[in-house]
C-alpha cells in the first residue's frame, strides 16, 4: 500500500529528513514493506492550506498541516498559537502539546475528525530568540524598532513599543540587510538556514517562546481505517521516535548555528536580565488572555485546554529534569 505524503516544506528541512521520512521508514520496516510512501515535497501539489483540503477530500493520505492556514475551521487547535510564549525546552513542549491533543482535548481531535482527518503528532521548534541587525544594549534600544515576527508574537512586539512586520523566512535576510526591518524573532538554526546571521549583529539570548501549533503527520481518516492493525501500531510507535529525532536535529542545528555566530563575532546578551523581566511582566496574565482569545473565537472549553497544557508542561518538565 503506497501512502502519499504532501508538504509545502522542502525535503531538506529537519521535519522532513529526520521526521517524516523516519516515520515511513520505520513503518515500512515494521510491516515488511507492506506500507510505502510517495512524497510530494515543497508544495509540488499544494500549499499548506491546500494540504488540509486535500486530506479532507481524500486526495492525499498524509500531509503537513497547520491550523493557522485554516483558521475558521480550526479555532480550537489555533489555541496552541495563542500559547506560543509557553514554548520552552522543545522536548517538554513537544511532549506537552501531543499529550494535550491526544489525551486531554477531545474538541481538538473532533476538529480534525470533522475534516475527515486524524492528528498523529506535532513537533516543537526550539525557542526563538530576538536577533537584531544593530547593536542593542538595553531594553530601550528595542523600542520603536521594526521587528519581524509571526502573528503569535504581535502582542509582545506591540508591548515593547515596536512595530510588527510579517516577512517570510526567505525574505528576512534582505529586509535586515536593507534596513526594512531591524530585528527578527527566530530559532537560532535560521541564522544559517536562511543566512540571517549574515545581517545580524546582536543576539538576545533570552528565549521568548516557540512554534508548536503544527501537525507534520495529519492522516485522512479513511486511509487510517484502511490500514492493517500491524501498520497502525507501527505508526503509533514510530511517531514519538520521529518527534524526538526532529527535536534532536533542531537542538544540534541550533548549537552549530550559535557556535558559528560566536565565531563570527556577534554580540550575545540577555540585556542583564532586563529582557526576561519585561517578558515575564507581559506574561503575568498570559494564560487567561489566551483562554479569552479562544473563547472569543467560540472555543467553549478554552480555559480547560490552557490549564491542561500548562499541567502537561509542568509534568514533562519534571520528567525531563
Amino acid at each position: 500500500q503506497e501512502l502519499q505524503y504532501s508538504t509545502h516544506l522542502p525535503p531538506s528541512v529537519l521535519v522532513n529528513s529526520a521526521g517524516v521520512e523516519k516515520v515511513f521508514d520505520l513503518v515500512s520496516k515494521a510491516t515488511g514493506g507492506e506500507v510505502t510512501a510517495k512524497y510530494f515535497w515543497a508544495g509540488q501539489l499544494y500549499d499548506s492550506a491546500g494540504n488540509f483540503d486535500a486530506i479532507r477530500g481524500g486526495v492525499i493520505d498524509t500531509a503537513f498541516t497547520q491550523p493557522a492556514s485554516n483558521q475558521a475551521e480550526m479555532p480550537v487547535n489555533m489555541m496552541f498559537s495563542d500559547l506560543y510564549h509557553f514554548g520552552g525546552d522543545p522536548y517538554v513542549t513537544a511532549a506537552a502539546v501531543n499529550a494535550t491533543i491526544l489525551l486531554d482535548c477531545q474538541s481538538c481531535r473532533d476538529e480534525y475528525a470533522q475534516a475527515n482527518a486524524l492528528f498523529l503528532g506535532a513537533h516543537a521548534a526550539t525557542p526563538a530568540m530576538t536577533v537584531c541587525a544593530r547593536e542593542i544594549r538595553s531594553i530601550d534600544d528595542l523600542r520603536g524598532l521594526r521587528i519581524i515576527g509571526q502573528q503569535a508574537v504581535a502582542d509582545w512586539i506591540g508591548h515593547l513599543g515596536s512595530t510588527q512586520l510579517d516577512v517570510p523566512p526567505p525574505g528576512q535576510l534582505e529586509a535586515l540587510e536593507r534596513g526594512t526591518a531591524d530585528c527578527t524573532n527566530i530559532s537560532p538554526e535560521w541564522l544559517t538556514a536562511f543566512s540571517i546571521g549574515e545581517a545580524a549583529e546582536t543576539i538576545i539570548t533570552a528565549p521568548i517562546g516557540s512554534q508548536f501549533a503544527t501537525s507534520f503527520m495529519t492522516m485522512n481518516s479513511d486511509t487510517w481505517a484502511g490500514l492493517s492493525d500491524e501498520a497502525k501500531t507501527a505508526f503509533l510507535q514510530a511517531m514519538p521516535q520521529a518527534i524526538a529525532a526532529i527535536v534532536d536535529g533542531y537542538v544540534a542545528a541550533d548549537e552549530e548555528a550559535l557556535a558559528a555566530a560566536e565565531e563570527q563575532g556577534l554580540t550575545f546578551t540577555d540585556l542583564g536580565g532586563a529582557y526576561r523581566q519585561e517578558l515575564d511582566g507581559f506574561l503575568s496574565d498570559y494564560a487567561s488572555r489566551a483562554a479569552a482569545k479562544g473563547e472569543a473565537r467560540g472555543v467553549a472549553d478554552a480555559a480547560a485546554i490552557v490549564a491542561a497544557f500548562q499541567d502537561n508542561i509542568a509534568k514533562w518538565q519534571g520528567i525531563v529534569d
Partner: peptide, 15 residues
C-alpha cells in the same frame, strides 16, 4: 459556510 478568515493585528479579515 465555514466563514474563512485570517487573524491580523487588532482583528480578523474575512477571506
Amino acid at each position: 459556510e465555514v466563514g474563512a478568515y485570517e487573524t491580523i493585528a487588532g482583528g480578523q479579515i474575512p477571506l
